[in-house]
Amino acid sequence: MRGWYGATLPSAAAATPSHGVITGWRLLLAICAMWLAGCAQPLPKVATDENTWSGRLALQVEGQDSQSFSAMFELRGNAQVGGLVLLSPLGNRLAQLDWKDGHAQLVSSQETRTSDSLDMLLQEVTGTRIPVTALFSWLQGNQATAPGWRADLSGVADGRLVAHRDDPQPQATLRVALTR
């Protein structure tokens, strides 16, 4: 087969599109993709909240009826407004606590309860009182006083917090290991 300028073309070239045509389509597709990407709206940035923590917590209460509680958790907010989700090691939701304006709600697989006291609902879930206001300060690396409790903040930079309760009896130890 002869081309328009008289040169002989190989027979395979006559059966397939020329290299220049394929390159042209690729260029056109690339331009369309860039145009579409330029028209797309950027995804909204997710605000990273400094008052959000997740990890594992363990609470050991000593005494005749020694008890322990451990769970994975997701905590957000502060002592006045926030939420706490407790998860099993397999990731199943055990309970969710939400609070604001002096009102707290506990949702578990068995029931939904409300109270004017976050401390009381948290005690029902964990088995003992936890100083919520101090806990938020401790997680931020700030020493805060809570009657009967003393916190070791030496590991907070590494995501570790240990707090001990000596009074009232029985003694208790709260351990938190952060993953964030």
Rank of each mutant, 00 (worst) to 15 (best):
Gly127Arg: 11
Leu57Arg: 09
Ser54Asp: 10
Leu106Asn: 03
Ser88Glu: 10
Leu43Ser: 11
Leu75Val: 01
Leu28Phe: 08
Asp166Phe: 01
Ser11Glu: 13
Gln80Glu: 02
Gly63Ser: 06
Ser115Ile: 01
Gln140His: 07
Gln64Ala: 10
Asp167Trp: 06
Trp4Ile: 08
Ser137Glu: 09
Met34Asn: 14
Asp101Trp: 13
Gly38Trp: 04
Gly38Val: 12
Phe73Val: 02
Trp53Asn: 02
Leu121His: 06
Thr48Asp: 08
Ala30Asn: 06
Leu174Ser: 04
Trp25His: 13
Thr114Phe: 03
Ser108Glu: 15
Met1Pro: 11
Leu90Ser: 14
Asp166Cys: 05
Arg160Ser: 11
Phe73Gln: 02
Gly102Thr: 00
Gly6Glu: 06
Asn78Glu: 07
Pro170Tyr: 01
Ser137Cys: 03
Gln80Lys: 05
Ala163Leu: 09
Ala58Val: 10
Met120Tyr: 10
Leu135Met: 15
Asp152Asn: 02
Leu174His: 05
Val132Gln: 03
Phe136Trp: 08
Gly155Ser: 09
Pro89Gly: 05
Arg93Lys: 15
Gly141Asn: 01
Phe69Asn: 11
Ile130Arg: 03
Arg165Gly: 05
Gln96Met: 04
Leu121Pro: 00
Ser18Val: 06
Gly127Asp: 06
His164Thr: 06
Gly6Met: 12
Pro10Lys: 05
Pro147Gln: 12
Ala146His: 08
Val125Ile: 08
Met72Glu: 14
Gly63Val: 02
Ala15Ser: 04
Gly127Asn: 01
Val46Ile: 10
Met120Lys: 13
Ala172His: 05
Gln143His: 07
Pro168Ser: 00
Pro10Met: 03
Gln96His: 10
Met72Leu: 14
Arg180Gly: 08
